[in-house]
Amino acid sequence: MRRFQLALPRNIDECVKFLAERGPETKVIAGGTDLLPQMKNGLLKPAAVVDLSGVADLRTLRRQDGSGLRVGASVTAREIERDAYVRSAYPALAESGALVGSVQIRNLATVGGNLCNAAPSADMAPPLLALEAEAVVAGPRGRRRVSLSDFFTGVRRTVLAPDELLVELIVPALGPRSGGQYLRHTPRRELDIAVVGVASQITMSDGVCAKARIALAAVAPTPIRATAAEQALEGRPLTAEQIGRAATLAVEAARPISDQRGSADFRRHLVAVLTRRTLTTALERAAR
């Protein structure tokens, strides 16, 4: 690993100030589970690194009565996985947290890191997209909110300017009879990266689907929503046939590549399988 300057800010303002001073050659480190391997392999050679471990404000995971959940950027995947409220109210998000890396990695890996690394395969992106989360971003000009749908701009690229920091995610509250699931396919059970990940989130009303959100990972340059599939479900009962149609539409939304983790053909095949399975489970969970 190359030598670099390390900054240890104690709060968000200090962090933003350092980023503003050092700008593009700086990387932010939280858990380091994505950043450090890239630095060790020489893929990234930042001149400076801002370590968030001293910034307590980023580590809070708060339930907001009636208005959802606020997830600090430094909340770990393990905390997401184990939080009782997240597990009961947002099972898709808890499931994604439980799939990152291994237990040791999840103890370090953070929600913010998973999103800001902006891998197409980021596990926590699909459930947060399907939950219509918003990102709170701090910069020298104050704070702004960005819909997560607009957060990713390309492979390993986000809307964050070099002097901006992701602070937290705001996850809206869900109505009654809501259900969701995240599933991904990997050749190994642990320590793997999604070949395809699918999150489905639905809300039922009077036997029909009032709202459907489907998000896909690892089938496009960024995590994406399958909006045509969502629209095909809304206002209809979720029969096996409707779910099958949505799965077909989700495949059409996917623009996968072939790489060492899977061929484009297999990825399309998996989008159909996992969309069908997550919608089926989401429907079961909505009925509870």
Partner: peptide, 16 residues
């Protein structure tokens, strides 16, 4: 080599 790490060169783990 397209998989030069133990992430993509998949040895089985105890979980498998």
């Amino acid at each position: 080599l397209t998989n030069p790490s133990l992430l993509d060169y998949r040895k089985l783990t105890a979980a498998d």
